[in-house]
Design a binder for these strands. Structure first.
Lengths: 215, 215
DNA sequence: ATCTTTATCTACATCATTGTTAATAGCTGC
DNA sequence: GCAGCTATTAACAATGATGTAGATAAAGAT
């Protein structure tokens, strides 16, 4: 049996937690990673500082220390995810160095529909202007498309409006990839389409567009 | 100048608010309408009972009285919106009584991309299982597609797998409509596509698929 | 070693949202 | 008119999330 002051001292000394001290960059990266995982698993509702902090093994005050407030954390997350999205698209377009337009389109489709990118864009579209600060880098995306259009246009038969058709093809590829990435799985399920058939879909779309790129 | 007890009586009698008494059906409809408007304008974050109630000119306790709790209101909203979505799709497919497959596809595209239906589906996809109770009526949707597939398949050339091709065409139309409804506007803006050009896109898609339906 | 910096923690204050309860008021039927 | 039903309300309670303040500890610098 201890006297009350001893109890107090002991309990206070036992409560001394070991702190894991990170560099600011490490801390931010760790937090954003956990936040992204929570977003994937629990949706928008899971994006609160307390839960994210617990996933990182830190107190929520630390999260606020690094991002200012909850909104700061969220916009930083959007910025990070759009950065990754843009990087993936750029890589996809550069990777298909064989300037074979169907290949390019397939890469574009994959880059937009995979890796949760479509879900990110859907989230941005649905979360009413709440995260538009960290929104996609319009200029870079515009440049990307501006470079892509003439590549496709040069392959399109003369009797068509080459530039307009190229834009439409890209537009179709992008919208289909978006819809595929967001609702492809449940849609396939409800249509009785097997997952193998669904996975062949991008290739089929490429073949469908091939006649337009034979010029 | 009034004595304090008179003040009290007057203030209490003046505080008697006039109540607008609705039928349960009216109240539910009014609440769901306001909730849908808030969802459109403020996104998922705007869906709390207090704000919805204020938009209806009632207290939030009334909303809870009619739906049990906040989750009840939200699932009821999802149910209502998916009902409307399904109804619109059915109407669209029946309306094109001229069994001209390109027309059918165009109607399907319009029904899925317009009226905020695409945004609803995106919302469902992003809101991690939070509202899956009120999710689309899988059976009816499956029946819908089951009826649609043979109509298209009969028009598809023999040398192709008619049923598989029909499914792919429907799949493409649906995913493109989804992506178009969700991200068509900002995508067109960043691609330098005018809104007129974007509005012609569904028709162009129909023409693109036309050769497959000439059988 | 000592100092400085700052990432981290605990504890508290604040606010928003949700849900409950008891009273009230607007209908409908008699 | 009167009575019963219930939609509606105000007020309160409870919970959770956010943000703040001061103390503390881990690292580097001197």
């Amino acid at each position: 049996m201890l006297a009350f002051w001893e109890c107090e001292i002991v309990s206070k000394s036992e409560r001394k937690t070991v702190r894991k001290r990170r560099s600011p960059e490490e801390a931010r990266a760790e937090i954003l990673s956990a936040a992204q995982a929570r977003l994937r698993e629990f949706g928008v509702g899971g994006l609160n500082v307390a839960d994210v902090a617990r996933d990182c093994g830190m107190s929520h005050a630390t999260v606020i220390h690094h991002f200012g407030n909850t909104a700061g954390m969220r916009t930083a997350l959007v910025e990070h995810m759009t950065d990754v999205l843009l990087r993936d698209v750029i890589i996809a377009l550069q990777q298909s160095d064989s300037p074979n337009p169907p290949d390019i389109l397939r890469q574009l489709f994959a880059a937009l529909s995979e890796g949760g990118h479509a879900r990110l864009l859907a989230w941005l579209a649905v979360s009413g202007d709440e995260f538009s600060q960290g929104a996609p880098h319009s200029d870079q995306v515009a440049n990307l498309f501006a470079e892509l259009v003439p590549v496709l246009a040069s392959r399109i038969p003369d009797h068509l409006d080459q530039k307009a058709t190229a834009k439409r093809i890209i537009f179709l590829t992008a919208t289909a990839a978006l819809g595929y990435g967001i609702g492809g799985e449940p849609l396939a399920a409800v249509m009785g389409v097997s997952s193998e058939e669904a996975q062949e879909f991008p290739a089929w779309l490429g073949e469908l567009l091939y006649p337009l790129l034979e010029g």
